[in-house]
Design a binder for these strands. Sequence first.
DNA 1: TTTAAATAAGATAAATATATCCGAATTAAA
DNA 2: TTTAATTCGGATATATTTATCTTATTTAAA
Lengths: 144, 144
Amino acid sequence: MFSKACEYAIKACIFVAKSSMQNNRVTPKQIAEEINSPVAFTAKIMQELVKSDLVDSYRGAYGGFEIDKAKIDQISLSKIVKVIDGEKLYDGCGLGLDVCNENHPCPVHYQYKTIREDLKQLLDSTNLKQLALGIENGLSYLKT
Amino acid sequence: MFSKACEYAIKACIFVAKSSMQNNRVTPKQIAEEINSPVAFTAKIMQELVKSDLVDSYRGAYGGFEIDKAKIDQISLSKIVKVIDGEKLYDGCGLGLDVCNENHPCPVHYQYKTIREDLKQLLDSTNLKQLALGIENGLSYLKT
DNA sequence: TTTAAATAAGATAAATATATCCGAATTAAA
DNA sequence: TTTAATTCGGATATATTTATCTTATTTAAA
Ligand code: SF4
Ligand code: SF4
């Protein structure tokens, strides 16, 4: 479904969001510890998220990553997925045809279409605030 | 969604099924031509499908691949996907937690669960006969 | 029995995804 | 101004996926 990098990105964002709601910046080391991921790889992914303006970073002592509190409920899963995995889950073909439209459908088009629509809907309508609250309330977990 | 190998496998099976319905065996070269895939890689994938008993192969002159006509509507997409990509799409976690169940859900569990159920349902209920007929009737295409 | 056409199998290569390492730049505080 | 903590960027390493090549084996028909 998602690439490993994207899984890490989603979990990292949830943790950074939760921390930011508590006014704490976090380091790659803390993130990796919290989501059970390789530190350096996670740091690389954070850089992409920063470049794409989903996360803010501050260098130097007492620095780290944070997300503007006012933006936390504006960041949907789809924004994160698009930054890391691109658009293919979003509008790619179930069977990877180059040309992919209603007039030239692949064999699974009719079955797959509604599922892709539902997935889009899910990714668009789920934001970091909801997910961070889920973690805070013990309804869900970032690692085993 | 699916790996490249799995996309080729699905398309190849559809083409073999369609050909078998017309009593024609097909070679890897014909398959690759028809689904726009690399010949040798496609041949490797066909071997896995044969080993898993989804496809029959016949060596030597006038040989090739075919699917028992009586079995074509018994082969669901889920069987093919499981052979090539394994169970992870089927029961893996949206965010790749090692432990994945209702009591210890990942953050997207509640949103993702129904989509995964729908996808399962789709893969289980769609069989090669339906898909092959779709191609035959010009309702869908195997390549661009 | 010979030949040509075909799959099977194993080795190898190329491309991509995942992961690590290190030095440079930045910054707040002592 | 020095130090320690931090991100940034580039280089490198490893693993996995995708793709190719080469040889052996099988088989139907001539
Ligand atoms: S399912 Fe439909 S939209 Fe998706 S690739 Fe196939 S034809 Fe294109
Ligand atoms: S979505 Fe649910 S079932 Fe899937 S990995 Fe997450 S917790 Fe597990």
